[in-house]
Amino acid sequence: MDSKSITFFPEQASSIAGTVDNLYLFLVLISAFFSLLIAGLIIYFAVKYRRRSDADMPVPAHGGLLLEITWSVIPLGISMVIFAWGASIFFTESRPPADSMEIWVTGKQWMWKVQHMEGQREINELHIPVGRNIKLTLTSEDVIHDFYVPEFRTKADVVPGRYTTEWFRPTKTGKYHIFCAEYCGTKHSGMVGAVYVMQPADYAMWLTNGGAQGSMSQRGEALFQQLGCVTCHQADGHGRCPTLVGLFGKPVEIQHGQVVNADASYIRESILYPQAKIVAGYEPIMPTFQGQVTEEGVQQLVEYVKSIGPKDTTGAGAPTPSPLTTGSQPGTAQQRATNPTAITVPGKR
């Protein structure tokens, strides 16, 4: 990392870095082969068939269908291999594993604000343990940013008004760059930071030294009281609004019989744009909390709602596959899962 020698690769510090580099090397070889082939042929022809006198005449070439088909099909075949390879890496990159440790990241002009589950907060730094799957849930307070760690070979746009995710498993301790990779205004190039990948024991120590006052969900609970949410969203369901106990990750029936999944985005939308989706059978009386709660506060509220949600997952933000569900169920299948019988203990809080 500190070596000053010229390198052509960033360090491989995540579980996918090696696979991305392999595909890259494969492509470099393909490109070198075709570039040299074309350059070699052109130079060879240019010399061999150079015009020696004005009377020099070319031999006509008869375009061959077979030749044309050959040099269409071979590149097509090669490019489909590249496509499949690249897509399979992408598929891995876009699906955070169920056991991921969750961290919330908020971008704003021009800094990164990080909240850990345990309550630690940091700015332009991200401390994580080596060897754990880490899932970042990202959002922005203003413009579009992009959270990029070259050593992990991954990035994701950070879009205002929605949650995006990015995950990686660091494989090497050390300090790595965080770059904002989507142009975001004057100090775009100053929106940088550092990831510190630590041994788990060091990470645990770091967590305890942070002086955090309560976990995210505890702070979310405090906000829940403070903003008065609790007066309507009563735990026993007798309030004027639906109870939030056991809600997280479950399907919710809203107006006109539509069903939505109560994930982090839904909770966020309901806090900031309460009229957008009204739960069936309830009056649209909730005021908006725009301007009263920050993006980070919303994240704490989401964690609180999650903490009083069904105890069937290890606490992933987007609904994660229940360990009891059988068969393959990526994506929508598990989003509709209404498995109430799960008994897994929540992750360490």
Binding site: Q255, Y273, Q275, A276, I278, P284
Partner: peptide
């Protein structure tokens, strides 16, 4: 009975 978000 069916209010909508004025933004939308």
């Amino acid at each position: 009975k069916h209010p909508v978000d004025p933004h939308n």
